[in-house]
């Protein structure tokens, strides 16, 4: 009974805020679009005698058939993968640097990593726009120095997209890496050195493989939200690149095709569950 009471709150929480929304999403994805409020016909209807199944896989069929959606998925995955990789490459030296700093400096340095979170997200994106646009600071400085004559287009390019992504998601990569690295016994690197390993070799043969779970956690913590990211590509990225986030938005708000939007969301979820499962499997390893 006590067990039940203890387990009930998190269970109810998950039920109300995870399971129920996903179930609703799935239901909408199986519905047929219609004019009206809400703009779909429920897949399970009551017609006097009993429940009647009126669901359809039409939305999923559209997703599968139309290259447009598949391309958006692939492009999103590529952007997420590259963003996560860039974050990881930057986060590794940062985490290592913080760990090797004097103990009294570690907490301030970690707080610095989190500092961007203290200002509004849109404000920071706005700052990037101000920096990168044609009449922006960066072009202004370059022109002032006489390095360029015409402004270099930076905003609405892949460069701006990845700058924004890495900037926003970097802390998610640094923190799990730092946690993983700080859990390692410092005697391990000393033992490697003692056995004749130069610092670089000790790092490659001991620290790097042992920090792999932390690196993977950092990678996935960036990859998963980045795959569905909408705001950053919309405000900074190239306009022609259709990512899942934007497609979803368009289907939902402009085309008012809720079932198709829901099907997109369900497909994205299914696609992201895969790396999460992979991560859990690796975490479970001793």
């Amino acid at each position: 009974m006590r067990r039940l009471l203890l387990l009930a709150p998190p269970f109810l929480w998950l039920l109300a805020f995870v399971a129920a929304p996903v179930a609703i999403l799935l239901a909408i994805a199986l519905a047929e679009p219609a004019m009206g409020v809400p703009p779909f016909t429920p897949p399970l209807a009551w017609d006097g005698e009993g429940p009647r199944w009126r669901g359809t896989l039409l939305s999923f069929a559209i997703l599968a058939e139309d290259r447009f959606y598949l391309d958006a998925f692939l492009r999103s995955l590529r952007v997420a993968f590259l963003s996560a990789l860039l974050c990881l490459l930057l986060a590794y030296p940062m985490a290592l640097g913080i760990l090797r700093a004097r103990p009294s400096r570690r907490l301030p340095l970690l707080l610095l990593v989190l500092l961007p979170f203290w200002t509004g997200f849109l404000l920071r994106i706005g700052a990037w726009i101000g920096l990168l646009r044609d009449e922006g600071w960066l072009n202004g400085v370059l022109r002032g120095l006489g390095l360029i004559e015409a402004p270099v287009p930076m905003l609405y390019t892949d460069l701006a997209l990845y700058l924004g992504m890495v900037h926003s998601y970097l802390p998610f990569a640094v923190l799990p890496l730092y946690a993983a690295l700080s859990r390692l016994d410092p005697a391990l690197e000393e033992a490697a050195a003692d056995l004749g390993a130069r610092p670089a070799v000790a790092f490659l043969t001991v620290t790097l493989p042992l920090s792999f779970p932390g690196a993977l956690a950092g990678f996935l913590l960036v990859f998963i939200p980045a795959a569905g990211e909408f705001v950053i590509p919309e405000l900074l990225g190239p306009p022609e690149a259709q990512l899942v986030g934007r497609v979803l938005w368009t289907e939902f708000f402009q085309n008012r095709d809720w079932p198709l939007a829901a099907a997109l969301a369900v497909a994205l979820l299914a696609l992201l569950v895969l790396p999460i499962r992979l991560f859990q499997r690796l975490e479970a390893r001793p």
Partner: peptide, 16 residues
């Protein structure tokens, strides 16, 4: 340390 011919056994063993 890596160039010293001495070896050390650590208290925590520090096995990889």
């Amino acid at each position: 340390p890596h160039a010293r011919p001495v070896s050390m056994m650590f208290q925590s063993y520090a096995l990889f």
